[in-house]
């Protein structure tokens, strides 16, 4: 029952979010602000995690592939495939759901309980559009770039750590990351990223927007935002994978 209630209210909110902006110039400024807020501030954590995970995957692959039938370039190939297909688009999105989702939900939630949203509504501003649209648009615009950087750094991390630990040689790794490359898989990855960006920003906005009560409830909204957007990411990851890869 409550599930239907949340779905219904979520879709109504999304509908209001995407209806008639008052003044486009103001929105554009907000979007740029959100790109910075969501994107640029997430770069350090993305960079660190991607680099080290790329490194670890490379070492693990080299450790596992001891059989003489497996060619030496398989290490680079494995790192590339796992980075491009799953690690960067999905796991990074889950991490960002934690960082961005809690940030958005608590920001909007705090605005709700301090009547800032009412203040917008009174002025005759569509508060859903004004607050949520720039976050969703900003997220969808910037997440693909963040994930692209994550992919690059992950593969680079694999290279650096692979060489440093003698897990593979430079030549094999570089050959491996170029082997059997199928560009359409990038479509699959980036479609996922865009869907996940929408889920993270809109679900977090939803929980923030309908916060009721005080500071405690803002914290709860923030937790709910992370939990539910993570679950939705996993579900959509499964659905999109079925759709693209079978």
């Amino acid at each position: 029952m409550t599930l239907f209630f949340h779905f219904g209210r979520y879709f109504l909110l999304i509908k209001r979010t995407f209806s008639k902006p008052e003044k486009l110039s103001v929105y554009w400024r907000q979007i740029v602000h959100e790109i910075n807020n969501i994107g640029i501030t997430s770069l350090p954590i993305i960079a660190i995690i991607s680099f080290f995970m790329g490194g670890v995957i490379t070492i693990q692959a080299a450790f596992g592939f001891t059989s003489p039938i497996v060619p030496l370039y398989a290490v680079g190939f494995t790192t590339r495939e796992s980075m491009l297909l799953e690690f960067c688009p999905t796991i990074m999105s889950l991490i960002l759901a934690g960082k961005i989702g809690s940030n958005i939900a608590s920001e909007i939630g705090a605005m709700r309980i301090t009547e800032q949203i009412d203040a917008l509504e009174i002025m005759g501003i569509n508060s859903a559009g004004y607050l949520i649209l720039p976050k969703v648009a900003g997220g969808i615009l910037i997440l693909p770039f963040l994930i692209a950087i994550s992919m690059f750094l992950g593969i680079y991390g694999g290279y650096v750590m692979g060489i440093a630990t003698h897990a593979c040689t430079s030549y094999e790794y570089i050959f491996g990351i170029q082997a059997f490359f199928e560009p359409w898989k990038l479509w699959y990855s980036f479609t996922k990223v865009i869907v996940f960006a929408f889920i993270i920003t809109s679900v977090a906005s939803y929980f923030g927007y309908f916060t009721q009560g005080g500071a405690l409830e803002v914290g709860r909204s923030s937790t709910n935002a992370v939990v539910y957007s993570s679950i939705l990411i996993l579900i959509f990851n499964f659905l999109l994978t079925q759709l693209f890869l079978t």
Binding site: A110, M111, T114, E115, Q116, D118, A119, I122, M123, G124
Partner: peptide
């Protein structure tokens, strides 16, 4: 609405 000004209990200034 554009002729309405409202002062909220806590001020409701945009943080």
């Amino acid at each position: 609405r554009q002729d309405i000004g409202m002062l909220f209990q806590g001020g409701a200034l945009f943080d």
